[in-house]
Write a protein that binds this DNA or RNA. Structure first.
Lengths: 137, 137
DNA sequence: TGATGGATTGATAAATCCATTATACGCCCG
DNA sequence: CGGGCGTATAATGGATTTATCAATCCATCA
C-alpha cells in the first residue's frame, strides 16, 4: 500500500488508483480539496456515514499517503497530503467530460443522425450537468 | 461501467479509477501512450500474458471507454480513446514522485537526522528510479 | 478516578475482482 | 466448405474488498 519504489512503476500506480477506487474515498478527497482541512465529524455530517465505515476508508487514504491526519484535542483533522491529489481529480473529471461527450456523440451518430437532436433529455441534461457541476474537482 | 452522467460525479470518478486499478491495465495504457496504436499480439508479447487474461483486462478498459479497438483483418488494434488518459497517468506519476519524496524525508527525520544520509540504498535508489524511469507515463 | 464523546480497530459475512480453463467467435486461406 | 490463427466470452474457484457490529483507544471534563 505504501508506494514502494522498488516495484515496477505500473504496480505502484495501480495501487494508487486502487486507493481512489471507491465513491466514498473520492468524495472525501473532493471535500478535502475545497478546504485546507476538515474534521472527521464534519466528514461524517457531509457523507452521512457510519463512523467506523468512514474511518476505514480514511485509513485506506492514509495508507496510500493521499491524506494526512492530525489530532487536536478531541478531534482529528484531515487534509490532502499533496496538492497533486486535487490535480488528479481534476484531470479525471475533464477526462470523464470528454468520454461522456464522445459516447453521446456516437450514440447520436449511430441512431439516425438528427443533426441537432431535438432534445435527448436524460443524456443531454447529464452532459451539461457534468460540465457545470459546482463540484470541487 | 459506462460513465453514466446521471449518477453523482464521485461515483463515476470512482468507477474510472477502478478501471485503472490493476497493474496490468496500467501497463497496457502506458504502452498505448507511447504509440498511436498497438495490436493485441504485440501487447501479448510485451506483457507475456495469457491471451484470455489480457483480453479480459482489455474488455475492462473498453467498457470504461479508456481505449478503443478496431479490427483489421485478423488482428485487433487498440489505442487510447482520449489523450487525457495519458495525462492522467502522467499526473499520477508526478504525484507518486512527491509522495515517495516526502515519505522518504519523513523516514530520515524520524530516525536520527543524519542531515545528508550516507546512503540508504534501497529507498534512495528507488527514489531516483522513479524520477528517471524512462517510462512513458 | 470514572464517565462521556470522538475516532479507530477487529471480526465477520456478503459482494466483488481476478487468473485459469474451456468454449466460442471472426477472419483468412487452402 | 474446413482448418487454423487471433481474440473474445463463459464459467469456476480462490483471493481481496467492503459494510456492519462489537470492542478499544484517546482526550476531555466532572
Amino acid at each position: 500500500m505504501l508506494p514502494d519504489a522498488s516495484r515496477p512503476l505500473y504496480e505502484v500506480k495501480a495501487n494508487l488508483f486502487k486507493g481512489l477506487a471507491h465513491p466514498l474515498r473520492v468524495r472525501v478527497l473532493e471535500v478535502l480539496s475545497t478546504r485546507p482541512e476538515t474534521s472527521v465529524s464534519d466528514l461524517l455530517e457531509v457523507t452521512g456515514l457510519e463512523a467506523s465505515n468512514l474511518s476505514q476508508h480514511l485509513a485506506v487514504l492514509r495508507n496510500n499517503r493521499l491524506v494526512t491526519a492530525d489530532r487536536r484535542g478531541n478531534q482529528v483533522y484531515y487534509r490532502l497530503a499533496h496538492p497533486q491529489v486535487a490535480d488528479l481529480l481534476r484531470v479525471a473529471r475533464t477526462l470523464l467530460g470528454d468520454i461522456l461527450e464522445t459516447t453521446e456523440r456516437q450514440l447520436v451518430e449511430s441512431s439516425g443522425l438528427p443533426e441537432l437532436p431535438p432534445a435527448a433529455p436524460a443524456v443531454e441534461a447529464a452532459a451539461t450537468a457534468v460540465e457545470a457541476a459546482g463540484e470541487p474537482a
